[in-house]
Design a protein around this nucleic acid. Structure first.
Lengths: 220, 220
DNA sequence: CCTACCGATCGGTAGG
DNA sequence: CCTACCGATCGGTAGG
């Protein structure tokens, strides 16, 4: 995606076999998530990769660059979800698109899938505190996404599709707080199917966890 | 509570007026939450408090001790919730206590109240990665609490009070993931009433967010 | 509560 | 002269 990430197909002898920037990034994000970004030294990362600290700088210009790559990955994915499901203004309610309620369900479903498929990168994003320009930029992009999601919840409430006894802002925060909490326990490895997990989250969020009073079920 | 926390009433000239260990702890937890524990230096904390780095060590033996105090506070509170609402084995279903379903609702409600009232300490707890013995001990205590909560969810499901199309373990994780996400946005300052917020979370979790199909309402 | 420091380790880079 | 690394060490700063 970025210029630094490309590998030349014509020069396959670049770097130790099996170690390109992507491999370093994957190992780094893994360590950052296990220990925290600040608590992870480049020495830790070098040990994990099996070569020296200096060798890392052949593949990547800085520690912060690794963080930036991971944050961009997760933000690109999440922004795509918001865009494709029409949380964007263009697909306003009543226009060409579906009702806000259906779009909200789609956003939740797709968000879960992104969180599962990009779990390491998204985990890092959700823990960013704003300690550097890169982190501050990520926080801004994330805030923009959250705002779009909150607007979609509000639109659904205005339609009358959502319960009216709770403020939409609160509902939005709790809903996506539940979705985001996935990264705390979900581990990559095909244990659970992403689509199936997404269906479960949607069902729980929209219908609640108590026994169903014989009403409408989802189209699972 | 701990020996290090007591202040001698007979020596009022200890430290600068208005700055005891509790004040240092409060400022430290605040900074840890804003910047992350590892990213916060004792120098940062000194600047925040308005005196030198070394002066901090008059009030507290180490940076890690500040973390330990905060983690203990949050864990004590959360363990009390689990104990008082009978997620403990003693108050098994059908015995002297209420049904598991009611106890689960109480645990959720009380958890929200604890998260609101001890937000800084609980926030720190939820971000611990296990980078030191103190953090590992906290993770163990937290895991024990999570296990109790999962058992209570399972007991509710066994009663038939909860929907049966979702595994209790998943329900437990998502439910308390939503509850815990409160610390990400709730800021102390009386803006929202804790009891009111707890009712909202319980309602959303148990009844879902779509328009109610004219069924049972909570006793709000 | 400060000045003056310590052993150790940080992220990053030198020459070869 | 290059790529792909290594052993050693840089200037600064961490917790104490």
């Amino acid at each position: 995606m970025s210029a630094a990430a490309r590998t030349e197909p014509s020069t396959p002898r670049r770097g130790r076999p099996g170690y390109d920037q992507t491999a370093v990034l994957r190992a780094a994000v893994d360590l950052f998530n296990r220990q925290g970004y600040e608590a992870t030294s480049m020495g830790d990362l070098a040990r994990e990769l099996g070569f020296t600290k200096s060798a890392i700088y052949h593949h990547v210009p800085s520690k912060e660059h690794l963080l930036r790559l991971a944050l961009d990955e997760s933000l690109d994915e999440l922004e795509a979800v918001v865009a494709e499901t029409g949380a964007d203004p263009p697909a306003a309610e009543g226009e060409g698109g579906c009702p806000a309620y259906d779009r909200l369900r789609s956003v939740v479903r797709r968000s879960v899938e992104v969180l599962v498929e990009h779990q390491p990168a998204v985990t890092l994003l959700l823990r960013v505190r704003g300690n550097s320009p890169a982190e501050l930029r990520a926080l801004e992009r994330r805030r923009a996404i959250d705002t779009r999601l909150a607007e979609l919840v509000r639109a659904s409430a205005d339609e009358g599709s959502l319960r009216e006894d709770l403020p939409p802002t609160l509902v939005s925060r709790l809903l996506f707080g539940m979705v985001n909490s996935l990264v705390e326990w979900h581990r990559p490895g095909g244990e659970v199917d992403a689509t199936q997990l997404a269906e479960a989250v949607v069902a729980l969020a929209f219908e609640g966890l108590r026994t169903m009073p014989a009403s409408t079920r989802s189209q699972g």
